Computed example of a mutant assay.
Amino acid sequence: MSNRLIPERLTQADLSALIKLNESVISSAPPGYIRPKSEADLAAIVTGGSGAAFCIRSQGELVAAALLTYPPPQVAGLPLFPRVPPEQWLDGAAFFDGAVVRPDMRGQGLQRALFDTRLAYARTQGRRWFCAGVHAGNVVSWSNLIRKRLAIVGMAFFYGYPLFALLRAEDADAVATDGPSRLVDPYDLAGHERALGAGMLGVDLLDGQIVYRRAVRADTIGQSVIRNVAHPERASSAASA
């Protein structure tokens, strides 16, 4: 049997296996790292009603999966995602959500392969703003995303869990940076707040630090740091990407 680790689109027939893999990974993850989704939510994504789901198999078994979800309508009182124009939110944005990899299959680039597959699919659907919300402690996930040219554009706190808001855009000017850089330790949340508040974006990695540089274009859309979001299930995804 071939054991080529190639991403593919999930189908309704894979739903039970996806649920099982999600439950297994989420049960062993630190609190807040991955936001659980209901069976109904997963079914809607797998069938294409609210996004798409992709997986990688090994010896015929699901060993990794990741979701691409479309954002809900903006709700009064909830924050806007930084730098994404509100008029392009519904039809132009996509979330890289819910990446899970079986522990014995980690370290083989499966998350990055699933990102590339989802990005290519999102583009075919006319999406131009590629978003993710990742627990600040989930170093592997947000490091992978920064390497894929997503920038940290904001922070939010969902029921006390700190999340980085990351963004990649077809409009490169939206996340372009210049000028001097600032290094921030990944676990220095106050340092991230100061950098974001100064109009900087986290755009690179250096010796275990996040490199912030000043954004060329000021963000007039969303707040860079948001606290105490009332309804996280209605806002940006709090899942690893």
Rank of each mutant, 00 (worst) to 15 (best):
Val134Arg: 02
Arg168Phe: 05
Ala136Met: 14
Ala99Gly: 09
Pro162Val: 05
Gly92Ile: 03
Tyr159Ile: 11
Trp89Gln: 02
Gln88Asp: 15
Gly126Ala: 12
Ala122Asp: 06
Ala99Cys: 15
Ala122Lys: 04
Leu119Trp: 06
His135Ser: 11
Gln88Ile: 07
Thr124Gln: 07
Arg83Gln: 07
Arg118Met: 13
Gly107Val: 09
Trp142Ile: 04
Arg128Ile: 11
Trp142Gln: 00
Gly126Asp: 13
Ala151Glu: 02
Ala169Ser: 15
Phe96Asn: 02
Leu114Ala: 10
Trp142Val: 04
Gln111Gly: 11
Cys131His: 01
Leu119His: 11
Ala99Tyr: 10
Leu114Val: 10
Arg123Val: 14
Gly92Glu: 07
Arg102Pro: 01
Tyr161Leu: 14
Pro86Tyr: 11
Ser143Leu: 05
Ala93Asp: 03
Phe115Ser: 01
Asn144His: 04
Leu150Thr: 04
Gln108His: 15
Met105Leu: 13
Asn138Ile: 00
Val153Tyr: 04
Phe130Ile: 07
Lys148Asp: 13
Asp97Pro: 01
Arg147Asp: 12
Phe158Ala: 09
Val100Asn: 09
Arg102Tyr: 06
Phe157His: 12
Asp173Met: 14
Leu119Lys: 08
Thr117Cys: 15
Leu114Phe: 09
Phe96Arg: 02
Phe164Val: 05
Pro85Phe: 09
Val101Arg: 03
Ala165Arg: 09
Lys148Ser: 15
Gln125Asn: 12
Arg118Pro: 04
Arg168Thr: 06
Arg168Gly: 09
Glu170Gly: 13
Trp129Pro: 00
Tyr161Thr: 14
Glu170Phe: 10
Leu90Ile: 11
Glu170Lys: 08
Cys131Glu: 00
Gln88Tyr: 11
Leu145Asp: 03
Tyr159Asp: 15
Arg102Ile: 03
Ala94Leu: 06
Leu90Tyr: 05
Arg149Gly: 02
Phe158Gly: 00
Ala99Trp: 06
Leu166Gly: 01
Gly98Ala: 13
Gly92Tyr: 03
Ala93Ser: 12
Phe164Met: 06
Arg106Cys: 08
Val100Thr: 10
Trp142Thr: 02
Ala120Lys: 12
Gly154Cys: 07
Ala172Asp: 13
Val134Tyr: 03
Gly154Asn: 05
His135Lys: 08
Phe115Gly: 01
Leu166Lys: 02
Leu119Val: 10
Pro103Thr: 08
Gln108Gly: 08
Leu150Ile: 07
Gly133Phe: 04
Val134Met: 06
Ala93His: 04
Cys131Pro: 02
Leu150Phe: 15
Phe157Gly: 01
Asn138His: 15
Gly154Asp: 04
Arg123Lys: 15
Ala172Gly: 08
Arg127Pro: 01
Phe115Lys: 01
Leu163Gln: 04
Leu167Thr: 01
Asp91Ala: 15
Arg118Leu: 13
Arg127Gln: 05
Asp171Tyr: 11
Arg127Ile: 03
Ser143Gly: 09
Gly109Lys: 08
